[in-house]
Amino acid sequence: MSIRDQILGRLDAALKNTNCQPLYAEHEDRSVVTEYYQYTPEQRVERLTKMMQASHSEVHQVSEKNWPAKLLDLMQAKQLNNLVIGDNTPHGQQLTNHWKEFDETPDLKSCQRDIEQWKDELFHNTDAALTGSRGGIAATGSIIVWPTPEEPRLISLVPPVHFILLRASTIHNSFAEVMALEKWQQGLPTNALLISGPSKTADIQLTLAYGAHGPRELIVLIVNDMETR
């Protein structure tokens, strides 16, 4: 008998010997996971902003039109020389087009290539990245990122600064709510992430330090798309 079958056999026997009956989720009261986290759309933006700032993220309100300009300002203020973008994405294209109008902009790098081709560049010569997001979570101040071939997993992790675009209309109340609403159980991507701040650690003497292994700075651009929706 394989090790697998031995382990499963023992577990099965234990259930039988202890006369253990299966429990069912339908009998559970799950209201507690959503009840405390009910907000209006405006409150969601407020709560998410407050929570993200508390975890050391920078949050800016921007419009559909002006965000590329705001991003340029921030890049220049932070003296960042280059930015990785998913140039096939609508926001990647919007940014590229907008920045074309200026003489001096940071270099734009494309992530439309296998990591093996540019691992060294990503690790050693990339200042910042821009990614979109799937949505936000007001309760905990989190951003939902499902990396795609257009915006792969490592660009939101390796560069020291991560800019993230979040549409206000996609901010949900809680993790439990968005998961149920969007029926995540029917199909998850290769990698799904919640990002709730810059990388941090308190492993030395419980003293908080930022930029442990991931981005030192997380800058969230909340696009106000509420009226247009």
């Binding site: 992530c111 296998d114 997993r153």
Partner: peptide, 16 residues
């Protein structure tokens, strides 16, 4: 800071 959900290895067409 991170909640990381992994459901598969790199798929065809994915870059990392």
């Amino acid at each position: 800071t991170y909640f990381n959900m992994i459901s598969s290895p790199r798929k065809e067409g994915e870059h990392d």
